[in-house]
């Protein structure tokens, strides 16, 4: 009888820890999902965060192959900004450092904070687009009626697969709720370094 008791206690503890472990697994799915998307290039998110300019200089040995980069802009629901690229299309040599700007104007009567989220198409080519400077790395804040030009500095890696001739870089600008604008969430901070 005592043996059964011990057995039971052991099993209950094991099963309860399995349940707790699965709760942890649910949360572990969040970083796993990001890693999976990054490795496979799914989702077209440009996970290559800000590249150190010094490193970029070394790597950037311009080649003769040219690709076309198209710039797109969208605004998320309830975002009262005008938002557009200043240039819609650029020809870029692989490895060449390029600079372009996006334009944003706050049409609302109060200060609004925005966060741009990038997406690259085709998705698997996202990791070859290296950004040195991007307005998407931080939240943007505009007073009522104010406007600004926002910088984007990047180069395309020379290891870009041969079949890619055109890359589309799309930004969706979301309104950041007041709560999160005041103190950027932990995830945001860790993501956008």
């Amino acid at each position: 009888m005592n043996d059964t008791r011990n057995n039971q206690r052991k099993q209950v503890i094991l099963l309860a820890s399995l349940a707790v472990g699965m709760l942890g697994f649910a949360y572990a799915l969040v970083p796993l999902y990001e890693v999976f998307c990054e490795v496979t290039g799914l989702n077209g998110k440009n996970y290559g965060r800000a590249v150190d300019p010094a490193v970029a200089q070394v790597q950037a040995a311009p080649s003769n192959r040219e690709v076309t980069i198209q710039f797109l802009a969208h605004v998320g629901n309830g975002m009262p900004w005008e938002f557009r690229p200043t240039e819609h299309q650029l020809k870029v040599r692989l490895g060449e450092l390029k600079f372009t700007e996006y334009y944003a104007r706050n049409r609302a009567a109060q200060t609004v904070t925005g966060q741009a989220v990038p997406s690259v198409s085709p998705g698997y080519a996202a990791k070859y687009l290296h950004k040195i400077e991007c307005f998407c790395f931080s939240q943007q804040r505009l007073e009522a009626g104010a406007d600004q030009r926002m910088a984007l500095r990047f180069y395309v890696g020379d290891d870009l697969p041969a079949e890619v001739h055109t890359l589309s870089l799309s930004y969706t600008l979301f309104k950041v709720p007041a709560v999160q604008a005041a103190s950027p969430g932990a995830r945001l901070a860790s993501n956008q370094q």
Partner: peptide
């Protein structure tokens, strides 16, 4: 938090 909100990553 922004687990499911694209605005927050």
């Amino acid at each position: 938090t922004s687990f499911f909100s694209a605005a927050g990553g």
